[in-house]
Amino acid sequence: MRWRLIRSPALSGAWNMAIDEAMLLAHAAGLTPPTFRLYSWSPPAVSLGLLQPADVVNEPVCRQLGIDLVRRPSGGGAVLHQHEVTYAVVADGRLCPDGSSVLATYRWLARGLMEGLKLLGIDATLPESLWETKTPSRSLSFCFVRLTGADLEVGGRNWAAPLKPDAAFSCSNTAVSRCDWRTKYLPAYSVRFTLTLLPVWNSLQDAVSLPTNSQRRW
């Protein structure tokens, strides 16, 4: 099956969310094929989950640091988007061979990411059980401290978590799921993880050849 691949340059959080939703609406209306969009964020941004209160982040400090704030159309915890490549998938949920439930779709997409990581020499795994969750009691506001049955794990760390789709996105047999591939940038172990993964991120950039802003409109 042919899928459209869109490589976007770095955009603000608000533009990235707007484009993702626009892609979904177009696909649900039958105007576009299944689409895989690669993008990054500039300036860095914290994205809040759909239902999170905005005060889980300190907005004045974010502003001081040049970090944007945006609310996603999907649920989950807050994520700092920096040094990462994000992908958005818009496709008919019936394409997923294991069923079109949210978790089955996550795991299907995660398998693609797992294969890609293998090509970079990283042995990532999916939890055995679809419903396995490992949630520490602290920092629940941050998306990546939680590990669900559809998150990839490298050395016991949740490394690439599909963001939870908004229920409104599962319309007309269309499912959207987004998965962010990013360095771990959480207060407890930010520097070490960032340094550890930086070479991988550079390889990833080379691998996907993201365009510069001057090369593409989006």
Partner: peptide, 25 residues
């Protein structure tokens, strides 16, 4: 990309956002 193509059994083809998508965005 190759990982996704292999695991999802799909073929990616470079594309652009449509005018309608850009307008919606």
């Amino acid at each position: 990309m190759r990982g996704f193509e292999r695991a999802l059994k799909v073929q990616f083809h470079e594309g652009e956002l449509t005018e309608a998508e850009l307008q919606a965005a």
